[in-house]
Every structure is written in structure tokens, then in C-alpha cells.
Design a protein around this nucleic acid. Structure first.
Lengths: 210, 210
DNA sequence: CTCATCATGTAAGGAGTTACATGATTGG
DNA sequence: CCAATCATGTAACTCCTTACATGATGAG
């Protein structure tokens, strides 16, 4: 259910078309809540049906058309109620730690491969977070600028401070995952060294699993 | 798609009924991959249809019945192929960091409330992880014991080592979230102090949002 | 006899994914 | 005139959630 509140958070700043919204989304909230356009368009329709937003049709060129949505009072209220309500945490579903818990069932090579990919994944995430942090620090993020223009000067500081806070948390998490996977690589090495030292009777491939 | 591999990981150790599997699941893998029984039973049927497992019907008392599943060769192969294949990372969908990024849209009280709950949530998770870590260290976890009995002594060490590795990663993450939320509380205080110091013209309630 | 636990599900709906589908406008 | 990008979706499918449904067995 968070998708609609993520959309409201952006729309509250000012009216946008589904297309623009989707772009703003992927550049800002998208780091924290992914949504493809095939999910955004229908959700906007549903939100309109629920009275949270209203769409105005605008002509574009000769036959082109776009629907620009703005938040209604009901939508603003719903958003603020959500912000003040306890978050519902989803159940854990963590493929990486699931696999990590059973790495003894595969070869050291496959285990390392998994850990290398894990590092690569989180390094790329970390880069993105760091990029966002830089943008926020420079106040040059498009979405943030739009936001800041509409915001009374007194609130600008907290707007920026909370964005930094959120992205710092994400970056920290990414660094944690990278460190964890690195320690995992060392563990694979250690365990492999031990099995090689002892069990030289069983063959290398068959020793991995079963 | 990870559910079936989580189930295979447990079933590979030895045959279990859906009911027993579900219990083992919630005590071990459940910390990493949640699945309710209403999802497990149908999934087992599907896995049987796909030839990954086979169920034997056993009578229990006069009319009672239970189906005990064991992994087929195809299932074992599928499991090992999954273990050696790259993991597919799901798209981010992180309600807590989503909300954190927009905390300027609510009152300091609601912001603190959110952060307190976040701390409470992760402290409870941390406790569970730490409990599991203790169990593993003592080799007293039911599921792990069963696993260890079936395992040649040479592999026991790595079985335990990888479980510790996985849960240490989870515990670390939990501690990270707690630390982050604590810093968030300090930030809320700091921002509130500033707004109170300056903007005494606008009323307290209305100053929060809009 | 009654309650905990064993045992196995169905049904409806929401959320998200992937692939497909179509056409208009604008800048070079 | 052609490509990029603006613009808006649908359809089929999987996965997951929530609630409901039912009955047997064994211990006290």
C-alpha cells in the first residue's frame, strides 16, 4: 500500500502528469521504492477513483493528450494520516541471507561467485546512494529543487536533513552488506583450506554437497 | 521463486510432512524467508507436480493421514543448480526509508513515534537473531541437529560456520537500523529546537506540514 | 470429554512483474 | 524524415496475504 503514498509525496509538491511523475519517481523515491510505469498509471486511476487525486486533461499539439494530476484535500489528509500511522513492516524475504545460510551445499567456487556478485550489487547501490547524497548536499536534484521552491525557507533545512538522513541509512546498509560478503569470502577460503588439508580421499567435486 | 528452494533445503536433509516442514521452516529459514502454511501446502503440491519431490501417504490412527515428502533426484539437481546460479535481487521496496525521506511532512511527535517503533521492531528482530546464534553455537537448534546427524563429520564445521555467518549478517543489519533510528531521534530534536527558537509566529500544529 | 496439537487445505483479493501495444510530437 | 522521447496504457501471470474451513488424534 506504500506505493500510493510515495506517489502522493511527490504529487503534493505540485501537479504532474503520469509520465513526469514516473520520471521524478525513478530519480528520487525510486531508490527506495521501485515501481514500473505499468504499475503507476493504473494506480493513479485508482487513486482518482478513491478521490485522493484529480486529473485534468490537457491538449498537446493537435491530437496529443496528457492528464495532469493534483492532490485533493482528501488526498492530502490521507497522506498525513499515513505519515502519522505506524508503518507495517513486511515479512522478511531475503534471498541473499537464505542462500548464505546454506552455502555448505555448493562448491567453494559457487559460494565465492555468489559473494562477489553480492559485493558488486551493493557497490552499485552504494554508488547510487552516494550520488544522491551529493545531489542533496548540492541541492541540485531536480525533484528536490522543485520541492524547495515550493517550500517556505524555514522548512528547507528539515527537508534536506531528512533526505540526507534517509540516504545515509541506505548507504550504511550497503556498506554493511559489502563488509559482510567480504568476510564471507575469507570464510570460504578458510573452510576450503581445511577440507583440502584433511579429506584428500574424497574427490574434489563430490565433496561439495550431498 | 526462492520459496521452493528454501523448502528443498530443509527437505534435502530428510523426508518430512507438510506440517513438520512448516514447523521447521518457521524455526529456521523462517527468520530469513517468511511463508505461511497456506502458501507451503500448495507449493509442495506444485513441487510434486514438477517432479522435485514425492509424497508418500501414511496412515495415522484410524482415519488420520499425512503426506511425507522426500526430494527426488531431479529436485536435488534443481536445488544445486539454484545454489550455483546468480541470485535475482528483488527491487527495493523499503517503507521505512521511504517514510524517513519525507519526515518533514509530519509532526516531530509522529516522527519520533515512527523512529521508536523502528527501534523496537529491529530490537525484537535482533533478539531473535541473537537467540539463533546462541542455538547454533550450542548446536542445539532442532533443525540443525537433524542436519548434523545426517552430515559427515567433515562437513559439520562448514554447516555451522555458514549458519553463523548468515545470522551474524542479519544481526549486524539489525544493529545498523537501530543506530540509524537513534541518530534520527537526535535529528528530530535538533530540528525541533531550531524551529521553536525561530518561527514563534506560526502556530505549533500548522507549522508541521503543507 | 475436552483441549492442544496434528494435519491439510481453499478462496478471494492485492501487489508486482514481464511482455506487449500504440501512437503523437519535437528537434535535428 | 527519422529518432528520441513524450504519453498512456492492457493482459497474463506469479507471488503473497488474509480469512476461512474442517476434522483427527492423543494426553490429561
Amino acid at each position: 500500500m506504500s506505493l500510493r503514498y510515495a506517489l502522493l509525496a511527490i504529487l503534493r509538491v505540485g501537479p504532474l502528469s503520469g509520465y513526469d511523475l514516473q520520471k521524478q519517481f525513478s530519480q528520487s523515491v525510486g531508490h527506495v521504492w521501485h515501481a514500473p510505469d505499468s504499475q503507476i498509471y493504473p494506480e493513479l486511476r485508482k487513486m482518482q477513483a478513491d478521490g485522493l487525486i484529480e486529473g485534468e486533461e490537457q491538449v498537446r499539439g493537435q491530437r496529443g493528450m496528457r492528464r495532469v494530476y493534483h492532490v485533493t484535500e482528501a488526498g492530502d489528509l490521507a497522506y498525513r494520516e499515513w505519515m502519522a500511522s505506524p508503518l507495517d513492516y513486511q515479512r522478511v524475504r531475503d534471498p541473499a541471507h537464505l542462500r548464505a545460510a546454506y552455502l555448505e551445499n555448493t562448491t567453494p567456487e559457487a559460494a565465492r561467485d555468489f559473494l562477489y556478485r553480492h559485493i558488486a550489487y551493493w557497490e552499485s547501490e552504494l554508488e547510487q546512494f552516494q550520488g544522491e547524497l551529493d545531489h542533496i548536499a548540492q541541492m541540485s536534484s531536480a525533484m528536490l529543487n522543485r520541492r524547495l521552491e515550493m517550500t517556505p525557507p524555514a522548512e528547507r533545512e528539515s527537508t534536506i536533513a531528512y533526505k540526507l538522513f534517509a540516504y545515509e541509512g541506505l548507504a550504511e546498509h550497503a556498506r554493511g552488506e559489502i563488509g559482510w560478503a567480504r568476510r564471507g569470502l575469507a570464510l570460504v577460503d578458510r573452510l576450503e583450506a581445511k577440507t583440502k588439508a584433511k579429506g584428500s580421499s574424497t574427490d574434489a567435486a563430490g565433496a561439495a554437497s550431498r
